[in-house]
Design a protein around this nucleic acid. Structure first.
Length: 573
RNA sequence: GCGCCCGUAGCUCAACGGAUAGAGCACUUGACUACGGAUCAAGAGGUUGCAGGUUCGAGUCCUGCCGGGCGCGCCA
C-alpha cells in the first residue's frame, strides 16, 4: 500500500497503485490524442494543421473500445492521404500515452481507444472528491450573460405558456453558471401602456357587477383580484371614476406581480432582476434611447410618427417608435431595454420567446445592429415552441381572454414541482410539446423523473446498507472494478462534464435530463449485477469497499445533474 | 403570399456530420426467500414525409415539393 498522492486525500486508508493513480477522463484523453496528432504533424508524417479541439466520444458499441476519436477522418482530406493511414500514425504515438491499454484503427479510420482498467476505475474516486464541483467547468469564465425569460404581463397569472421557459430558462441559468459564466436572470415587466388600463377597467367593472368591457380581461381570476383590491382600499368604488381606476390599476398590478413572484418561487425559479418598463419611461431612458438611435442615423419621421429603419438590417418592415398621437411603443421601450442591458455590461443578451413571438426576432436583430452591435455576437434569441396540454384526449386551450387558463399554480398542484420541471425540461425547446395530464400526473415509473430520482434514492439506500455492515469510503482498489457493468457505469459517469458543457453551449437543458435517464439505467443494471454489501454472511471484500466509491460517485453525479434541472434529489422516496 | 419551427417505432420524443437510428409508454415472455421490484432480463416494432444534391460518411447540411404549427398592426 502506498500513501495517497498529495493534495487529494479524503480517507486514510486509500490504496492506489502505479499507473492507476490517475483517472483517464475524456478531457485528458482528448488532450492525449491532440498531442499525438501534434507529434505526427511535427514529424511530417502527414501534412495539415492541428485542430483546435479533438473530440473523443464514448462509442455506443462496446466493441469499439472505451472511447473513440474520428480525428483521422477529419484530417484526411486536407492531408490528401487515406484516413486509415493517418489513423495508424496517430495510433502508433497514442499507444505510448499514460493509462492507455490499447488503440485500434477501425472502419474508415476511427481510433478505438481502450484505457487501462484501473485508470477507468480511478474516476470513481475523483468524482467523490470533486463532489458538487464535478461537472463544472471554466469554459465560459469571464462571460457576462443576461438571460431574460418568462416576462409575464402583470395583468394575469403566470400560465402554462410561460412555464416551459420558466423551467428551461432557470435550468439554463444553472447550466451556464456551471460552465463558469456570470449570469443575471431577468424578468421584464410590461407595466406601461394600455393593457394595464384595460385590466383596471375590467377589475372595476367586475367589482361593480357590471359587464367586463369587450377588449378587457375575462379570466376567472379577475373577480378574485377585484375583491382583494376592494378590501385593500376601502371605498374604492365610491371614488370618482378616474381615481377609482387609478387605484385598481396600482393595486391590481401589485397583486399580480406579487402573485407571479410567488408562483415562480414555488416553481424554484428566481430572478435577479425584475425590470420595469415604466421605470425606463419615467427616467427618460426611452427618450434617450430614441435620441441616440436618431444620432446614429437610423431614425426617420413619416406620417406624423417616428420610425426606426429596421429594414436596413434585415427586418421585413420599418418599426414605429413614437406613434402619431405621441405615445411611445412597446418597441421603443424594448430598444431602450437592450441599450440598458448593454450599459450594464452584458456581453450577451439572451431572449427566450414563445413561438408566437418569433416575428420579433428580426426587430430585435435590427435594434442590435442599429445600436452598432453585431446581432450574431451580443444577441441570442431562443424560440420555444408552444406547449399543449391534453386531458382525456382533448386539448385545453390556454388563453387569458377565454378564461380557461391553466396557470403555473394549477400545473404545480397537478403534478408537483419536480415532475413539472422535469417534464418541461426533458424535451428540446424547438419541438412543439404535448403533455398528457394523465401521463404526467401518474406517479409511477411511467414518468422518467421518478426513474431518475429513484436511482438517486437507491444510491443513498445502498450507502446506508453498506454503512450498516461497516463498509465506508476507505479501501479503494480501482482495478477491481472490472465487471462490464462497472466499465459501462464508469464511462457514463465520465461523460457528465462534457454533457454539461455541451448542454450549456447548445442551450439545451434536455440533454442533461436524457443523460440522467441513461445514467440511471446504467446504474440500475450495475446494481442488479454487482453487490455493494455482500449477500447474507458472505465476507466483506475489497471489491465491496471499492464499489461503495462507485455507488457514491453515481450519487454525486445524479445529484449534480438533478440540481442543474432544479429537481430535488431525494434520499428516500 | 412572405418568414420561423416541426415531420424519426402504434404514441410522446432523443440522437455536437460518424460506425448496426435510440429511450420511455403500450404490446409479448421471463426474474418475486428483493443490499426497497419505483428494479432487471429478453422479444417484437423503422424506406427518419417525398425527390434530388454536397462527401470518405446525411435523420442531421443545400435545393425543390408535400403535410402540420406559429407569426406577419402607428397592439402589447
Amino acid at each position: 500500500m502506498r500513501p495517497s498522492p498529495e493534495g487529494r486525500r479524503p480517507a486514510a486508508n486509500c490504496e492506489t497503485r502505479g499507473h492507476y493513480d490517475r483517472a483517464v477522463t475524456p478531457t485528458e484523453l482528448s488532450a492525449a490524442v491532440s498531442a499525438a496528432v501534434q507529434a505526427c504533424l511535427e514529424a511530417g508524417e502527414f501534412p495539415g494543421e492541428a485542430p483546435a479541439e479533438v473530440a473523443v466520444e464514448r462509442p455506443k458499441n462496446p466493441e469499439h473500445g472505451d472511447y473513440a476519436a474520428n480525428i483521422a477522418l477529419r484530417l484526411a482530406k486536407a492531408a490528401g492521404k487515406p484516413a486509415r493511414e493517418i489513423a495508424e500514425a496517430i495510433a502508433a504515438r497514442l499507444r505510448d500515452a499514460d493509462g492507455i491499454a490499447k488503440v485500434d484503427v477501425a472502419g474508415p479510420g476511427f481510433l478505438n481507444i481502450t484505457v487501462a482498467s484501473g485508470s477507468l476505475g480511478q474516476l470513481a474516486r475523483s468524482i467523490v472528491e470533486a463532489g458538487e464541483s464535478y461537472g463544472r467547468s471554466t469554459q465560459l469564465a469571464g462571460r457576462k450573460i443576461n438571460l431574460e425569460f418568462v416576462s409575464a404581463n402583470p395583468t394575469g397569472p403566470v400560465h402554462l405558456g410561460h412555464t416551459r421557459w420558466a423551467a428551461l430558462g432557470d435550468s439554463l441559468r444553472r447550466l451556464l453558471e456551471a460552465a463558469g459564466a456570470k449570469v443575471t436572470a431577468e424578468h421584464y415587466i410590461n407595466d406601461f401602456g394600455s393593457q394595464l388600463d384595460k385590466f383596471a377597467a375590467s377589475l372595476r367593472a367586475v367589482a361593480l357587477g357590471e359587464p367586463v368591457p369587450e377588449d378587457g380581461y375575462h379570466g376567472d381570476y379577475v373577480a378574485g383580484v377585484a375583491e382583494q383590491v376592494v378590501s385593500a382600499v376601502p371605498g374604492v368604488l365610491d371614488l370618482p371614476e378616474d381615481e377609482s381606476l387609478a387605484a385598481f390599476k396600482t393595486h391590481g398590478y401589485e397583486l399580480m406581480l406579487a402573485a407571479a413572484k410567488r408562483s415562480l418561487e414555488t416553481f424554484r425559479v428566481e430572478f435577479d432582476v425584475w425590470f420595469s418598463e415604466r421605470g425606463m419611461h419615467e427616467s427618460g431612458e426611452v427618450d434617450a434611447a430614441i435620441a441616440r438611435l436618431r444620432e446614429q442615423g437610423h431614425v426617420f419621421d413619416a406620417d406624423g410618427a417616428v420610425w426606426l429603419r429596421t429594414t436596413d438590417f434585415g427586418d421585413d418592415k420599418d418599426r414605429v417608435l413614437v406613434r402619431s398621437n405621441g405615445e411611445k411603443t412597446y418597441f421603443a421601450a424594448d430598444s431602450a431595454y437592450y441599450l440598458d442591458k448593454r450599459g450594464r455590461g452584458f456581453d450577451r443578451c439572451v431572449y427566450m420567446l414563445g413561438a408566437d413571438h418569433h416575428g420579433y426576432v428580426g426587430r430585435l436583430r435590427a435594434i442590435v445592429a442599429c445600436a452598432g452591435d453585431d446581432p450574431d455576437t451580443t444577441l441570442e434569441v431562443l424560440i420555444g415552441q408552444l406547449v399543449k396540454l391534453v386531458k382525456n384526449g382533448e386539448e385545453l386551450r390556454l388563453s387569458k381572454r377565454a378564461g380557461t387558463i391553466v396557470t403555473l399554480d394549477d400545473f404545480v398542484e397537478l403534478v408537483g414541482v419536480d415532475a413539472g420541471r422535469y417534464s418541461l425540461a426533458r424535451w428540446s425547446a424547438d419541438t412543439p410539446l404535448t403533455l398528457d395530464i394523465a401521463e404526467i400526473t401518474r406517479k409511477s415509473n411511467d414518468n422518467p423523473v421518478y426513474y431518475v430520482q429513484y436511482a438517486h434514492a437507491r444510491t443513498c439506500n445502498a450507502r446506508r446498507n453498506a454503512a450498516d455492515v461497516g463498509i465506508g469510503l476507505d479501501v479503494f482498489r480501482p482495478e477491481l472494478l472490472n465487471d462490464p457493468h462497472e466499465a459501462a457505469l464508469l464511462a457514463a459517469l465520465g461523460e457528465f462534464p462534457r454533457v454539461v458543457a455541451t448542454a450549456a453551449e447548445l442551450r439545451a437543458p434536455h440533454r442533461v435530463a436524457r443523460y440522467l435517464e441513461e445514467l440511471a439505467g446504467t446504474y440500475h443494471r450495475w446494481y442488479d449485477t454487482c453487490r455493494i454489501a455482500p449477500k447474507g454472511d458472505d465476507p466483506i471484500e475489497d471489491v465491496n469497499r471499492t464499489r461503495a466509491w462507485l455507488n457514491e460517485a453515481t450519487r454525486v453525479v445524479l445529484a449534480n445533474g438533478l440540481a442543474l434541472l432544479g429537481v430535488s434529489a431525494p434520499e428516500r422516496m
